[in-house]
């Protein structure tokens, strides 16, 4: 069941509108379940800002960015957040290594790496804090599913799926 679904082009300056729209849907759907509502929107914020920082780094404010974003609920009450965006092929290896490393960590390892990065890494204004996927993995307890679909010699579609109960 789709709680929210969007596929289309979004200008970098319109990300706020998209975030507002998703928040309204999340608030309406999870009106009775504050815990899941707040967790869901906190993850949405990180996913949307990942796209802002990494899916459009080569574009200016007026460029339209093709993205898709959905929130689904399965029959066994698992929620799945799917986000996809365009990524330069040159970044695939870096991102794949980063996600594999995050997925390989134990709970204690995640806590340790997260707190070390929180304390010691320098905030990069163009790329965020580098904590987003670590945060998501910690908060959901699940590995981050991802895939890359090559579109041409320059770019690919990157899709990430976050599941939680």
């Amino acid at each position: 069941m789709d709680i929210f679904s969007y596929k289309g082009n979004v200008k970098k300056i319109s990300f706020d509108k998209l975030l507002n729209l998703i928040e309204k849907k999340v608030n309406m759907y999870f009106v009775e379940d504050k815990r899941v509502r707040m967790k869901t929107f906190a993850i949405v914020i990180e996913l949307i800002q990942n796209i802002y920082h990494h899916g459009s780094s080569h574009l200016n404010e007026d460029s339209e960015i093709p993205i898709s974003f959905s929130i689904q609920k399965t029959d066994d009450n698992v929620f799945a957040l799917k986000a996809s965006n365009i990524l330069e092929n040159s970044k695939i290896e870096w991102l794949k290594n980063k996600l594999d490393q995050i997925n390989s960590l134990s709970k204690a390892g995640l806590d340790k790496v997260y707190l070390e990065r929180l304390m010691y890494t320098k905030l990069n204004e163009k790329e965020g804090a580098g904590l987003g996927f670590l945060y998501i993995r910690r908060k959901t307890g699940n590995t981050i599913q991802y895939s890359f679909t090559r579109l041409n010699e320059l770019i690919s579609e990157f899709e990430v799926v976050i599941s939680f109960k």
Partner: peptide, 12 residues
């Protein structure tokens, strides 16, 4: 109510 991970760096 909410803060993103890049804000957490600023809070620290």
């Amino acid at each position: 109510e909410y803060f993103n991970t890049s804000s957490s760096k600023c809070l620290i």
